[in-house]
């Protein structure tokens, strides 16, 4: 059974006195396996938050089905299994973190004795120890984000939905959050998080879904996406005269006494390597250069066309012409 399954989700908003209709989600299909970290990637305005709000019943979908562990997502029963961190969260600033978490436990009908232990553990886990009795109006943005995580975990949920969880966090906070998310996965929790920050995704996710213009453009295991996406091959060689190398391959760069050649296919690599060795040169390395998530993302943004091969070596020298 899928931890989260979305089929044909559509949502539009009306504005300008209900005259114009804006289609925000144009049929979202995605699924999240239990126990995985799923990254929901898309630029601002792509429909990430709208999708999440439809999942939680905060927005009414025009069409489509959403289920959490087989139950309709907007049902009270499904919401017992979910923990949610909103984007840029705001909590009652007249309460302290401890009081807010106690309020959150009351909404789940968690008995007082159990609640106190859970609250203390969560405060420690998100790094708010020593600040738990401070009023939230005195909290920094990062501290609010940490409290947001704590309240999302208060019911020990099977599925955590985090909307832009890294926004507002400093580098230490980001590292702490990554560690926390990994530890949650080790506990068997499913984490679905949205972000427009590619680095967050690349470092953490098992699977990724790229949303653009209200549709899922790509979805799959990040490792497979990257594996299948060799852009070009880089051949590094030396001990060969530039003139001879130019005869083999017209365009190359030089750096630190090495020559770097960029080749589009495996067949070209074989030919070029043989020629270099035949001319007395030495092959230092042959590297298939794969697309990063960033490349995949921008390729999707450009309409699915693969990006033009560009050397990543940051070479200084110019190729002989």
């Amino acid at each position: 059974m899928k931890a989260l399954e979305i089929k044909g989700l559509k949502k539009s908003f009306r504005s300008n006195f209900l005259i114009r209709r804006y289609d925000i989600l144009k049929g979202i299909d995605l699924d999240v396996e239990p126990g995985e970290i799923y990254g929901f990637l898309g630029p601002n305005g792509a429909g990430k938050t709208t999708t999440i709000k439809c999942v939680l019943g905060l927005l009414r979908a025009d069409a489509g089905e959403v289920s959490v562990a087989g139950q309709p997502a907007a049902s009270v029963e499904a919401r017992r299994r979910i923990g949610f961190l909103p984007e840029n969260p705001f909590f009652y600033d007249y309460l302290s973190a401890r009081e807010y978490l106690r309020f959150a436990t009351s909404l789940f009908a968690i008995p007082q004795a159990e609640a106190d232990g859970r609250i203390a553990a969560l405060i420690h886990r998100v790094g708010l120890s020593g600040h738990e009795d401070l009023k939230l109006r005195k909290y920094s943005k990062g501290m609010i984000q940490r409290l947001g995580l704590a309240q999302a975990m208060i019911n020990d949920p099977e599925l955590l939905i985090l909307d832009e969880p890294f926004s507002g966090l400093d580098p230490v906070g980001r590292k702490d959050l990554r560690t926390l998310i990994f530890s949650l996965r080790e506990q068997g929790k499913t984490i679905f998080f949205s972000s427009h920050i590619l680095q967050d995704m690349e470092l953490m996710v098992d699977r990724v879904g790229i949303i653009l213009g209200g549709t899922i453009r790509r979805q799959g295991r990040l490792s497979e996406m990257v594996e299948r996406s060799t852009q070009y091959y880089e051949v590094v060689c030396d001990r060969i005269a530039p003139r001879e190398l130019a005869q083999i391959q017209g365009d190359f760069a030089s750096r630190d006494g090495h020559f770097i050649l960029t080749l589009p296919s495996e067949g070209d690599v074989n030919l070029v390597v043989e020629s270099i060795i035949h001319n007395g040169g030495r092959i230092v390395a042959v590297t298939p250069v794969k697309m990063t998530l960033e490349d995949i993302f921008f390729s999707e943004m450009a309409g699915g066309a693969p990006p033009a091969p560009t050397s990543r070596s940051g070479e200084t020298g110019g190729g002989a012409r």
Binding site: L56, L58, R79, R80, F84, P86, A104, L107, F108
Partner: peptide
């Protein structure tokens, strides 16, 4: 948002 996403 944080309230209505809970079983309320």
């Amino acid at each position: 948002l944080a309230i209505l996403s809970k079983p309320v």
